[in-house]
Amino acid sequence: MIHRILNHSVDKKGHVHYLIKWRDLPYDQASWESEDVEIQDYDLFKQSYWNHR
């Protein structure tokens, strides 16, 4: 379960990846995930991330 999205990056092919802080895990366990991976409520977290940038 996502706690929040910390950052994003765009690779050379134009694909967006998000650095995800996972609920109940420390920050050093955050991981980069592609924008099209199937994660519960991912779209809501991405929308919230962009609304607050």
Rank of each mutant, 00 (worst) to 15 (best):
Leu25Glu: 08
Lys21Val: 07
Leu6Lys: 01
Tyr27Lys: 14
Trp32Asp: 02
Gln47Met: 07
Lys12Thr: 13
Lys12Gly: 13
Lys13His: 13
His52Asn: 14
Leu44His: 13
Arg23Ile: 11
His15Ile: 14
Tyr49Asp: 08
Ser34Gly: 12
Ile2Gln: 00
Ile2Arg: 04
Glu33His: 09
Lys46Ser: 02
Pro26Trp: 05
Val16Tyr: 14
Gln40Leu: 09
Leu19Ala: 01
Asp24Ile: 04
Trp50Phe: 01
Ile39Lys: 01
His8Lys: 00
Leu44Asp: 11
Asp36Glu: 12
Glu35Met: 01
Ser9Phe: 12
Ile2Phe: 00
Lys46Trp: 02
Val16Trp: 04
Lys12Leu: 10
Val16Ser: 04
Tyr27Thr: 15
Tyr42His: 12
Leu6Met: 06
Val37Glu: 13
Gln29Cys: 11
His3Ile: 00
Ser31Thr: 14
Val16Asp: 05
Met1Thr: 12
Ser34Phe: 05
Asp36Thr: 10
Trp22Gly: 01
Trp22Asn: 00
Met1His: 07
Phe45Ala: 14
Ser31Ala: 02
Gln40Asn: 08
Trp22Tyr: 03
Lys46Arg: 03
Ser48Asn: 14
Ile20Tyr: 02
Leu44Phe: 10
Val37Phe: 11
Ser31Glu: 03
Glu38Pro: 10
Lys13Phe: 13
Asp41Ala: 07
Glu33Asn: 05
Val37Leu: 13
Glu38Phe: 12
Gln47Arg: 12
His52Asp: 11
Arg23Cys: 09
His17Pro: 01
Ala30Thr: 05
Lys46Asp: 01
Arg53Asn: 09
Glu35Lys: 02
Asp43Trp: 10
Gly14Phe: 04
His15Asn: 15
Glu38Thr: 11
Gln29Arg: 12
Lys12Phe: 06
Asp28Asn: 13
Asp43Phe: 08
Glu35Gln: 08
Phe45Ser: 07
Arg4Ala: 06
Glu33Thr: 12
Trp32Gly: 01
Leu25Met: 15
Gly14Thr: 00
Ser48Asp: 14
Asp36Trp: 08
Gln47Ala: 12
Ile2Leu: 01
Leu6Thr: 04
Arg53Leu: 12
Asn51Pro: 00
Gln29Ala: 12
Leu6Tyr: 04
Asp24His: 11
Gln29Asn: 07
Glu33Lys: 13
Ile2Lys: 02
Ala30Asp: 03
Ile5Ala: 03
Trp22Phe: 02
Lys46Met: 02
Ser31Arg: 05
Tyr27Arg: 14
His3Tyr: 11
Tyr18Leu: 01
Leu19Arg: 00
His15Ala: 12
Ile39Val: 04
Phe45Pro: 01
Asp36Asn: 15
Arg4Asn: 09
His3Phe: 08
Gln29Trp: 06
Lys46Ile: 07
Ile2His: 05
Gln47Pro: 03
His3Gln: 14
Trp50Thr: 04
Arg4Gly: 07
Trp32Ala: 00
Met1Ala: 06
Val10Pro: 06
Ile5Leu: 07
Ser34Gln: 12
His15Val: 12
Phe45His: 15
Arg4Ile: 09
His8Thr: 03
Leu19Lys: 00
Asp43Asn: 11
Asp11Asn: 10
His52Thr: 15
Leu6Gly: 05
Tyr18Cys: 06
Tyr18Glu: 06
Leu25Val: 10
Ile20Lys: 01
Arg23Trp: 11
